[in-house]
Design a binder for these strands. Structure first.
Lengths: 196, 196
DNA sequence: GACAGCATGTAACATGTTACATGATTCA
DNA sequence: TGAATCATGTAACATGTTACATGCTGTC
């Protein structure tokens, strides 16, 4: 139940059309909550029917015509309630970690290239976040900007972690390849299973 | 498309029934790929129909009777292909960050308590991971265990990050409360919007 | 008027969540 | 025999993904 609240937040920051929202979900908000345009249009319809948002009156009701939405008081109240309550964070769900665990059982063919590729991606993302921080956030500003900067710093911290972990993982995998299994393709045994 | 592969990995590590899998998805594998028993049973059905796994022959086909599964060669091949190919990691999706961003617009009522609560949860999770590392992984072992340890170290790194970030966020939010907005409940304005 | 690009959608399907249903086993 | 627990499932719905459909606007 977070996409509607992401949309309400974005619309409070600035009334927008579906496509404008889609673009903002590719940057900004999208850095920690992504959504496709199909999801956004579907959700805009629901929010409108629920009375949380309304289309800005601009006479065109037709398909292919731009349609801007703004948040109504009920929508702001809904968002306030959601933001101030309790909510558990979901456990980690990461396919790369899963694949590492699979590689422990079926062999680590191609693993080092994949780790290197991800390392490159995360380094690029980290650089992008750091550029945004340098460009948009200078000295301590008003509360709203300080909160947005905290969010950005979470992104920076996470990417920093991934870069460090991937470097560690790559070193470990290369050391394993240099060691007892020159081909690096043999299946590992299934005995022991610590970590259960 | 990761749950079937998570199940194949788990079954290769050890043939299991649906309920046993469910339990392992609450520890171990579940630390980076969670699943409920309903998902697991549904997926076991699909994997069986696809010829990737089979029920161990033990005569009982009835409801309420334990049913153990093992991976067939086709299943192992499927997993090997999935683990050795390319695959993008999904962008971050974190509701707490989204709520921080919402708080920048609708006010930060209750935010500090929520941050403290999450800090406690992440500290506990970190301690659990560290205990597992100390208990199950000693000196460098065989390749399979070294890979599993790498996965665990990702969990440790992520929790370490969250603890550090939450401490930073809490300090910042408390400083904001001590500053220009004693009540801490007023709405922030919507002007500026850096980070777009 | 043809085409590119903008803008809004529909449809079908996969995955994840929540609530509930049913049968087997054990033990008081 | 009745309650607790183990074990396997169904149903309904919410959310996310992929592919496609339709109408508008500007420009060559």
């Amino acid at each position: 139940m977070s996409l509607p609240h992401a949309i309400l937040t974005a619309l409070l920051e600035k009334p927008s059309s579906g496509l404008e929202l889609t673009r903002r979900f590719d940057r900004s908000i999208g850095y920690f909550w992504s959504a496709t345009h199909q999801q956004i249009y579907r959700e805009l319809g629901k929010l409108e029917r629920a009375g949380f948002i309304r289309a800005l009156p601009s006479e065109q009701p037709a398909r292919g015509q731009k349609k801007e939405f703004e948040v109504l008081p009920a929508g702001r109240a809904e968002l306030t309630g959601w933001a101030s309550g309790e909510q558990e964070s979901k456990p980690i769900r990461d396919a790369l970690l899963l694949r590492l665990r699979a590689a422990a059982v079926v062999g680590r063919t191609g693993l080092d290239e994949e780790l290197r590729r991800h390392l490159g991606l995360h380094r690029r993302q980290l650089a992008e976040y750091e550029e945004i921080e340098g460009r948009d956030f200078g000295a301590a500003a008003e509360p709203a900007d300080r909160l947005r900067r905290l969010v950005l710093r979470a992104g920076i911290g996470l990417e920093t972690f991934w870069v460090a972990w991937l470097e560690e993982a790559l070193a470990e995998v290369e050391e394993m390849a240099a060691g007892e299994d020159p081909a690096g393709t043999a299946d590992a045994d299934a005995g022991g299973r610590p970590g259960e």
